[in-house]
Design a protein around this nucleic acid. Structure first.
Length: 280
DNA sequence: GGAAATGTTTACCG
DNA sequence: CCGGTAAACATTTC
């Protein structure tokens, strides 16, 4: 579920609530919540103080007053929720609660229905944890370089949608924003990158950036309770979606029926009129 | 009741 | 390198 705008919404919420707090206790309630690559059990972080919350693409991490970081990936259904610590007795059971991190008056909870998300203790290289070291810069990164990104797309001999989803080409874009980006760009998802002019690729990247910025401003996209911010609130970008999840409904631009195709093992939504299939 | 679908990532195979 | 497929899993929808 969570793509860059959702992860960034979570990061902002976490930063507001956990920076400066010390980890007093860590309770792992599901074995898959700790990534196998974790250098140590999450409980080894007891005593560490949280100095900051960082993000690259869809990867999140907590910077600590020690070299290691606590890395998190939300997968399809991961959430962080901030709650006030209450005595064990008063706690209502929380569905899919995987990890509890005691920060004193605050408890940080990692909740994950499908358990594709994970946490890990990792080292960093130039401030970036191992898990995210192969991930390209996302368009919100101050060091993001548009020309380098264009070159990377141009070098891919594959379809534009696959490249958009490839986190080593550009990071942060997932299935929702890829479809929305291509609709805005009037490009069919199966258009080959090598057939696209650099100017068109530039337009695609800029549209991806724009659609994710707009989504961030609305707190991200929530279809259900599977994506909510650290306070348990939903995002409102769903109402702004032009094609994603709208198969059979009308294109906001031309009113043709939106189509859905299976593609790269997931659904792609597009307008057959605004985004005609490129001729081979 | 069962199949198909769901926002991610990684691995494997041809 | 590319692309298809599968896998990890729980839940909802058709």
């Amino acid at each position: 579920m969570p793509e860059l705008p959702e992860v960034e919404t979570v990061r902002l919420g976490l930063a507001k609530h956990v920076i400066g707090k010390k980890i007093l206790k860590v309770e792992v309630l599901h074995p898959r919540a700790t990534a196998t690559k974790s250098l140590a059990p999450l409980s080894s972080l007891v005593g560490a103080k949280i100095k900051g919350v960082s993000r690259r693409g869809k990867f999140l991490w907590f910077d600590l007053d020690r070299p290691e970081v606590l890395v998190a990936h939300l997968g399809m259904s991961g959430q962080f929720l901030i709650s006030n610590s209450v005595s064990k007795k008063e706690q209502a059971p929380v569905r899919h609660l995987r990890v509890r991190i005691d920060l004193g008056r605050t408890e940080l909870r990692f909740i994950d229905q499908r358990t594709f998300g994970w946490l890990a203790v990792e080292n960093t290289t130039e401030g970036v944890p191992t898990a995210a070291s192969h991930i390209a810069l996302d368009p919100f990164d101050p060091n993001f370089d548009l020309e380098i990104a264009i070159a990377r797309f141009s070098g891919k001999r594959t379809e534009i949608k696959r490249a958009l989803l490839d986190q080593e080409v550009i990071s942060g874009v997932g299935n929702i924003y890829a479809d929305e980006t291509l609709w805005r760009s009037k490009i069919h998802p199966e258009t080959r990158c090598e057939k696209m002019k650099p100017a068109k690729i530039r337009e695609v990247i800029l549209n991806a950036t724009k659609v994710m910025k707009e989504a961030l401003a609305q707190g991200g996209t929530s279809f259900d309770e599977l994506y909510i911010n650290v306070n348990g609130e939903s995002g409102y970008f769903e109402r702004s979606l032009a094609v994603y999840g709208r198969e059979g409904e009308s294109c906001p631009k031309c009113h043709s029926a939106i189509r859905r195709i299976r593609f790269a093992n997931r659904s792609s939504h597009f307008c057959p009129k605004c985004q005609p299939r490129p001729r081979a």
